[in-house]
Design a binder for these strands. Sequence first.
DNA 1: AGAGCTTGAGTTACCGATAACACAAAATTA
DNA 2: TAATTTTGTGTTATCGGTAACTCAAGCTCT
Lengths: 336, 336
Amino acid sequence: MITIYDIAEKANVSAMTVSRVINNSGRISEATRKRVRKVMEELNYIPNSMARGLVLQKTKLLSLLITDITNPFYTTIARGAEDTAKRSGYKLLFGNSDEDYGKEKDYVEMILSTRVDGVLFAPTGDASLEQLRQLQKHGIPFVILDREVPGIETDVVLGDSKEGARKLVEHLIGLGHRRIALVNGSPDVSTARLRYTGYREALLLGGLPLDESLVVSLNYRQFQDEASLQVLLALPSPPTAIFAANNLLAVGIIQALRQKGLSVPEDVSVVCFDDFGPAETVNPFLTVASQPAYQFGALGMQLLIERIENGPGSESRKIMLPSELLIRSSTRTWDR
Amino acid sequence: MITIYDIAEKANVSAMTVSRVINNSGRISEATRKRVRKVMEELNYIPNSMARGLVLQKTKLLSLLITDITNPFYTTIARGAEDTAKRSGYKLLFGNSDEDYGKEKDYVEMILSTRVDGVLFAPTGDASLEQLRQLQKHGIPFVILDREVPGIETDVVLGDSKEGARKLVEHLIGLGHRRIALVNGSPDVSTARLRYTGYREALLLGGLPLDESLVVSLNYRQFQDEASLQVLLALPSPPTAIFAANNLLAVGIIQALRQKGLSVPEDVSVVCFDDFGPAETVNPFLTVASQPAYQFGALGMQLLIERIENGPGSESRKIMLPSELLIRSSTRTWDR
DNA sequence: AGAGCTTGAGTTACCGATAACACAAAATTA
DNA sequence: TAATTTTGTGTTATCGGTAACTCAAGCTCT
């Protein structure tokens, strides 16, 4: 591996002079600067960021941790975060926790040992508190994305889950549905709690009773639990509409419904949070509350960079972004 | 920041002893081991991977570079690669080149300066050769994914583009289409060339003439260039079917067609390479040649790890995975 | 012309970890 | 019991960079 010492020797200067050329620091005569530059090119020199990070105690590396890399919502966040980081001269490491607390923990350990300058963190749930405390203990700035974690003070970028949920459920009520089920994420996740609240409020406003037997809590990551759907459908008076707390749950639900010979929206209407990627624009089907994912990433990253560059002690900001109701064809009127 | 020296002092041993405890190397009495462990816990110690990497000259870090993080094909690859890396005790850094040669170059520079142990590389095109040479020059093992790069000897995991293209076009011919357009990626990309070859072969086998005015070359990343579609549609005898070389191109094409008041598949049939994510399973629409993306990632990662651990000098392997024709509703018979 | 300042370098120490070597004390062997 | 081996631990040098200090030579100024 080529080091500054190799360059130094070949250019007949000291290592320090090479370092100065690399960093444009100190005073160097134009002649030596040129000479050193030429040798660097010739030898194809690339600085060792470990050595540099070790002495400088910073890396110009940021980390983005998302909970599901196959979910378009999060990949769009990634795009926003990356564009913004790049603009400020930071490189970005992506991490994927797969909604798995264990993987999240592993990833945080890697972050810590890599000594990144900051983390944009989409938590798996309230239990992520421990990870965030860990970051705090080690003095690494972070900004939280998408889900609030009680007990932590820092910048947060959130969607308005309650409002979005209310819009979705009101839409269903407006179509004449009276039995609306909620297939929710885990109550350990703030968005799931708020979506439940929004659901309840909408029912209340619509003069409908809250029937807890219509509410199921699963995991955002995937809908593996067909049994829970079975429970809903086996009810004496089964739901005519289902509000899925996120896009992947909706996918699972629709597939399970079809396996049971029910079709959407003829037999059951389905709505959910978060849009799909390009696929959905081609053949729009699901009625969703779409959140501005790119903005999540871009704003979050901006807050993070400010937080890093202004040093500690800045007060916490909380940004809440609205979601947009996109009515498509997975919902229809119910008048039976 | 807590270092082994802090631990050493508090545990009344030398730094070296702490290092031995961390790495389970050398001989340590059970008593000191326990004492050191306890202090490490108390002080919440996390090893500094930069310092360690500097002396060990390896990082247990691998890098995955994909060309589009919002394309489900690549995120599924990421999932496969990550699962496999994890199983061998490697951490994975994701990078996203956005089909942009400049970003790819930046990313390779970061990789080089981070001194990762290996790279799983989905090239943007033939020009990536320079990047790969760079990796080679610095002795970093890599495996190429999805697209061949002429001039480089290493392991490659590819889809069978020619065969897939032929299946898609044969399907269209079978439906009665005679004027089939190809909206391709850049000829700088191996898959685009092979898909063109497959297209040509299918036409030949089907007894249809090859009309170069029906072939357009764009960029895989996105379909911004509506003018090219305009050219196709303005032909004296416009195409009745379009073969898009990848999923994102297909999305753009369909949107553009609709804006012109044409519907799919009534007026034009559309097929493409690569499936969409979960969204497509809910409301299947596009007829595609689906590639086993998870396998791409998993196999590629496996080859990479073998390559790293067996040292240099192993001969190059080339794995070609078949694609599967999924006939859905974006295609229909043509008998006018 | 001598004092003081600039300029363009070089020296040394250190960041946090580990390899290689060294060595006293304890255990084993002859 | 003396010689040898094993065990447990410490010392020193090093990885590739950079900060802080040093210093000779050339300039500027009175």
